[in-house]
């Protein structure tokens, strides 16, 4: 069954293949990311979710297939144009990828310092605002090695959002956070998304909670996107693989009554 996906695809993966040595990781990934919508990529560990993001970001080149952003094949365009496309990106890596020789403040300030001509005072305000939003104020002078994994995630999120990107890519934004913090992140995410209207691609294991944020859910399984559906369709899908994933992720007794309690 084909989903009723509507809108304007801002990112398209077309038959993307990738192998590392003998391991065929991506076996023809097809996925459309709709402008202004939140697409959540789910799937078991090691199924290649982070790899899909890296292909979209242009950090990894596919062996076969195309990655289109705004209709441009990012592996064929000039470096300058790729850079331009990336100015609209906000990225959170799975391991946060903070600059470990810079303190928290400088990490978040870096995109502002390098890409804008704001004064140091304006930068301070913007950074403080984003850090407060992520609830990590007061650690400005600490280095990444001195903060917890969950704090790194939130600093990484602050850094990803500081330039008000058009498309955000979050690789497991709430993994390693306690329930309260992760709910807080979702709330912030929901607020900023409605305010700024960015397109979001989120890789997450936080099923079913993440379904509340998602406009579309894509299941990556065995190197292909099994299907990309709305959360409701996804949970009711008859596709055996999706069905199995839903049952494993939410428990076999999961029903819509329980969803209301969440």
């Amino acid at each position: 069954m084909k989903a009723k996906i509507t809108g304007n695809p801002i990112v398209q993966l077309v038959d993307v293949h990738k192998s590392y040595g003998p391991h065929h990781i991506l076996k023809g990934v097809n996925l459309d990311i709709m402008e202004g919508k939140t697409t959540v990529i789910v799937g078991g560990s090691g199924q290649g979710k982070s790899q899909v993001l890296k292909h979209v970001l242009g950090l990894t080149q596919p062996d076969r297939g195309k990655v289109l952003v705004n209709g441009q094949d990012i592996n064929r365009i000039k470096k300058k144009d790729l850079k331009k496309i990336r100015t609209e990106f906000g990225v959170l890596f799975q391991n946060s990828a903070l600059f470990d020789s810079m303190n928290v403040f400088d990490n978040v300030a870096l995109p502002l310092r390098e890409r804008t001509s704001h004064s140091e005072k304006e930068i301070r305000e913007l950074v403080e605002e984003k850090l407060a939003m992520m609830d990590v104020s007061g650690s400005n002078d600490k280095f990444p090695a001195q903060i917890s994994g969950g704090m790194k995630k939130r600093v990484g999120l602050a850094r990803a959002l500081v330039l008000n990107p058009k498309i955000v890519f979050f690789d497991e934004p709430t993994t390693g956070l306690d329930v309260k913090k992760s709910n807080e992140i979702y709330r912030v995410f929901y607020k900023t998304q409605t305010q700024l209207g960015y397109t979001a691609v989120i890789v997450s294991h936080d099923v079913p909670k993440i379904f509340k944020l998602a406009d579309y859910v894509a299941l990556l399984n065995n190197g292909i996107v099994q299907d990309c559906l709305t959360p409701e369709e996804f949970q009711l899908s008859n596709d055996p693989i999706i069905k199995q994933y839903v049952e494993t992720a939410m428990g076999p007794l999961y029903s819509s009554e329980m969803e209301d309690e969440l």
Binding site: K84, F89, F93, D100, S101, L110, R115
Partner: peptide, 21 residues
Amino acid sequence: AEIGVMRISEQIDALDCMAID
């Protein structure tokens, strides 16, 4: 060593994604 560590901890990828060369 400094640049190598930045590479393996994805800091260079992060710079790339921020459109910082």
